[in-house]
Nucleic acid binder design. Structure first.
Lengths: 258, 258
DNA sequence: TTTATTGTGTCACTATGCGATACGACTTAT
DNA sequence: ATAAGTCGTATCGCATAGTGACACAATAAA
């Protein structure tokens, strides 16, 4: 396992300089929105000279903006252009978008499209409503798959051995005081999803939030993605979500591949 | 001019290998959604061996997905994570998002947030409605600034000498049969925007589309961005846009910095 | 002022990326 | 079937391109 990793890095095909450049890009996240040279050095663990050269190159190439006064670097618009290219490359997006918009307009609540990415889900499309907080309204956010409704309902489309392995091996993080850390409970939730075709979670990643999700299946039955609706627990309870939202959600999810 | 460019590239701080790696990423766009090795060679103009190494590195680093069967490369989810980091890095986004959602819900039409990026605008936030076609519903799209309502209204916040220079120098492309290529007409439109604080265009980038935009001004008066609403010419005419949409649009744009 | 910190510029060294080449796996044509 | 062509993969000696230690400059802090 570790050998394989080393193999790849030591492979003569591996270009270390490019890898280092990508480390700079990845140093930016929600808690590092702009970075100075020395901060980049600290975050990447690279030599100061190397960071200087790489950051300069990324700046010249338009991948990093540089404040002339503070000398701090920031992500540039090019990062959105890459997202644009991604959207065209994934054929599911164009099919899902109109249906999600329709669902969003008819129920007036936050609608998301999520995909599996390793042991995380990533939100690929998001249609927020007025009450949606910022982090839940922008694309690209990653969350642990087994802690989310969308993740569990996608896992439920996998062969049982695979999703059971996931519930055993994937890490469990406590995010809210009511995050479920009991792996048996998670397994039970997925087992239910196998039978029902949907999952509902409460207060897992955000307090006072109820999420319901249904899978979009590929030809092999495996989920390509999941449609997820999130509502406030102040205005909904689980029962009402089942009655009012779930039918429309499932209709949407089923309609996307047809 | 050309010297300066050469300078930068020949500067000892410029890391060519990283630059080449970025060329691979940028080879993907709406008409190149997945690329084989040889296609990458053709598009980037690099040596086959170099492309092989760089693509392999990007794959190992998780920046490119590789279909095991066809050996073709595709943008990965990491491209959306970069967008996520961008959104956090731009303080305007968090302030604009809730207001845009509110506007979108109240008028039921497509709402966009656009920024200037060189001589193009880039759509940074998009809230589509049912009728919005795909290209107009995803973020990161770039369009020539002087051909769009959002671009013109932002230019109108610049000193006159600057926006006049832009109307003289920036290229004009014909996109629809009714695209205005007359630079005098464009100048007139911007001059109107200086007085009125808004711009309306019809059929410039997409046929049967009417767009109206208002600027979000920074402390120095220059536009940081523009809020743009696009409607179908089948259901609206310019007069109705002015009466029904413009007031709400301007209220939204003005409210974002307050 | 002095002192500390951070960004920029220089340079000799050699590790690292380069690119020509060969090979194997597939596809297409005859 | 065989052959020719295409495409992805693997190899390797060479020279260049990136390295990292250092010194200097520019701000910020004391």
């Amino acid at each position: 396992m570790l050998d394989k990793h080393l193999d790849k890095k030591q492979n003569s095909l591996f270009v270390g300089t490019l890898s280092k450049g990508l480390r700079l890009l990845r140093a930016f996240d929600e808690s590092h929105t702009s970075l100075s040279l020395t901060e980049l050095v600290a975050l990447t663990g690279l030599e100061k000279s190397a960071v200087q050269r790489l950051a300069h190159t990324l700046h010249v190439e338009g991948m990093l903006d540089k404040d002339p006064a503070t000398r701090r670097f920031r992500p540039s618009h090019a990062w959105l252009e890459l997202a644009y290219a991604y959207y065209w490359s994934d054929p599911l997006i164009a099919r899902a978008m109109p249906k999600l918009v329709e669902l969003s307009r008819s129920i007036g609540e936050t609608v998301n499209l999520a995909q599996i990415s390793g042991d995380h889900i990533i939100y690929v499309l998001r249609l927020p409503n007025q009450r949606t907080h910022f982090a839940a309204s922008i694309v690209g956010r990653r969350l642990p798959a087994i802690a989310t409704a969308a993740g569990r309902v996608m896992l439920a489309t996998w062969p049982q051995a695979e999703w059971e392995a996931a519930t055993n091996e994937w890490p469990v993080h406590v995010v809210t005081p009511r995050t479920v850390t009991d792996r048996d409970a998670i397994r039970q939730d997925i087992a239910d999803a196998v039978r029902n075709g949907y999952t509902i979670t409460s207060n897992q990643m955000i307090l006072n939030e109820i999420s319901v999700a249904a899978p979009i299946r590929g030809i092999d039955g495996r989920a390509l993605a999941a449609v997820q609706v999130s509502v406030s627990a102040h205005s909904f309870d689980v029962e009402r979500v089942k009655q009012e939202i779930l039918p429309l959600l499932q209709e949407t999810a089923n309609g996307i591949l047809a």
